[in-house]
Structure formats: structure tokens, C-alpha cells
Design a protein around this nucleic acid. Sequence first.
DNA 1: GGTACCGTACTCGGATAAGCAATGTCCGAGTTCGTTGGG
DNA 2: CCCAACGAACTCGGACATTGCTTATCCGAGTACGGTACC
Lengths: 160, 160
Amino acid sequence: MRMSEGVEWALHSLLTLAWLGDDQPVPTARFASGHDLPKAYLNKQLQALVRAGLLTSTPGARGGYVLARPPEKITLMDVVTAIEGSERAFRCADIRRRGPGATAPAREYAEPCAIDSAMRRAELAWRRELAAQTIADIRAAADAHAPNAAERVRRWHGRD
Amino acid sequence: MRMSEGVEWALHSLLTLAWLGDDQPVPTARFASGHDLPKAYLNKQLQALVRAGLLTSTPGARGGYVLARPPEKITLMDVVTAIEGSERAFRCADIRRRGPGATAPAREYAEPCAIDSAMRRAELAWRRELAAQTIADIRAAADAHAPNAAERVRRWHGRD
DNA sequence: GGTACCGTACTCGGATAAGCAATGTCCGAGTTCGTTGGG
DNA sequence: CCCAACGAACTCGGACATTGCTTATCCGAGTACGGTACC
């Protein structure tokens, strides 16, 4: 089980936008050169964020991406769902009723598969933690450890 | 992000062994026909459980797999780790220090990446829930919903 | 000098390949059990 | 009738294809800006 690295890229891009703080669009090329990432593929991930309503894109020259809502309103769950999709990691194929089990009365399968329920419980705990943390929280934690990072990013993006 | 379906197969196989309860080995072919699964590939997954110390295998005719320890001592975390490996789903590539950020003083990177920490927190919650549930719990839940299932499985595997 | 027009550079957006891990398949080493021949 | 040797069937275990998804790339539609010609 491996999460797409696009999630990391998206989170860093969103964090950068949170640091910049203004409404001036940032193009993909700038994000990409900032972290040495493949431009076109990063753009694909940012498009997913637009479709999910986390970013707003403006086409054409001087275009780019802007946060669609304040960083406090963007949770990690939103980002992971936007990039990875909303499907669960564990997908019960209901193999209990394949094979000989198929002859059992349907009444026995009224309740959901116990294995599926157990995995769902674990995955819900994961989602709950993701939903409890926002981009603003990430920024606060980063600022606490490295107060200069925000300023350096602003400089590099031509602000001030 | 998608979990291998081998996890579901492994859990069902372990649950079956818990239902049987004796020390009589069950071959892969029986598990496979029981849930209509590809025999050789299922065997690959069961081998992983052997390597992880969850199953004991006996080769040759009348051979097969047996639980290596009681169901109360086998957690879902054990099974997921055995099949999926112990690596985290989110793997921080530390892209914060790639590109222009590389010129920043190393002192700023002493603390772990805030994004990595946040994702780690969520994943720990997931693992905690997985470690809190055992094969015995799964069996108890399944028995509560469908008391006849255990008996039917025992019959089908030639017990009694 | 001011204004309208045009060309260029730059952006997102989606359609199109390449790489790799998960999935699936096959064959060999080893063990058990039934059979068969001899004592 | 009893026993030993043998062969066949069955099992795990690892090496070898194949499929699907992640990753990566390319090109087109659209927009803003700078230059230029004209009024």
C-alpha cells in the first residue's frame, strides 16, 4: 500500500500558498522549480485540487493557482481525497459468499462482513486524524520549528 | 492508495483456521476452492504469513498450513504488515530541501518535516486500531451475526 | 501624444506514452501413503 | 500372513509472465502584455 507522492507535492504547494498569503496567482512552473519537480505532472495534481474546489486557477499569462478558501478550512483529508480519490484502501470483495459459501441462506449475509467492519474502523480512525488537521496547522508547526522559512519562501516567490 | 487484496484473502484464511480450531493442516487448494481464488497466488500470500511467523507450514502430502499461535495473539496489524510490508503509506521525499531550499541553513531542517509529522500522526491512529483487533475478535463478531457459519465451515473442511 | 491593433510569450487543461509494482502462472524439491512383491 | 521396497499423488516454495495503475510527457486553447502603426 503506497500513497501517491502527488499528495506530498500538493501539500507543499498549498503550504507555499498559505505562506504567501496574497491573491497573486502562482504558476505551476514556479512550484515545480521551487522543489525540483516535473512541471507537467505537478500540474496534473494541482488540477485535481481545482476539481476538488481547493484551488482556483486562472489561465493565460500571469495566470496560476490561488487558494480557494483560507488555510484553516483546508484539511489534510480534503487533500488526500482530492489526489487519491474517495475510495477506501481496503475494498471488501465479499469473498465469503463466493464458492461453497454461496449455498448458505442469504439471511447470514445481512450483516456486513466482520473483516470489512474491522478494517473500516481502522480506516475511519485514519480519516478522523486527517480531517482534524488543516494547512494552517501545518504552517503553524513549520513556523514554530523554522521561523525563517516563511520569509525565505516569500522572498523567493518575489513578494516584498 | 489501494491495499492489496491479498490482505482480505489472508484474513479469511486465518479466520477459517480459527474456526477449525484443531492442528490438522489445511492446504492452499482447500482455501482457494473455498472462496474461489487463484490457488498459486493465494499460496504466495500464505507464504508471506509463514515468513511473518503467523502460520506454520508442513510440506508434502497431507501438508498445509496451521496457525502458529492462538487467534487472540494475531492482530490485524500483524497481517497487514506481513502482506503489505512495514513501510509507511506516506513516504516523505523531503522535497522541502530540494531546489532553492537547499541553500537554507541545515539547522532549519533539524526538526522533521511538518507535513511528514502530520501524516505520521494519522497513520499511527490507523495502526493503533489495527493492532487493537485480533483474529479472535473477528471470529467473535462473525459468530454473533451468523452462528451457523462456523459449523458450516467445519463441515465443509471435513471436520466432525 | 493617444489609441487601437497585432504578435508574442506564457498559462492551464486534457490527451497521449513509459515504468513499475501488483497480480497471475508454472515447474521443481520433498513428503506421505497405498501397492506390490517377496519371505 | 507380515514386512519392506517402490511408485504415484499431493504439498509447499520459489522462479517466471502479464496486467493495471502510477508516473511522466507533449501539444492545443486561451489570456495578458509589449510593441507598432495610425489618427
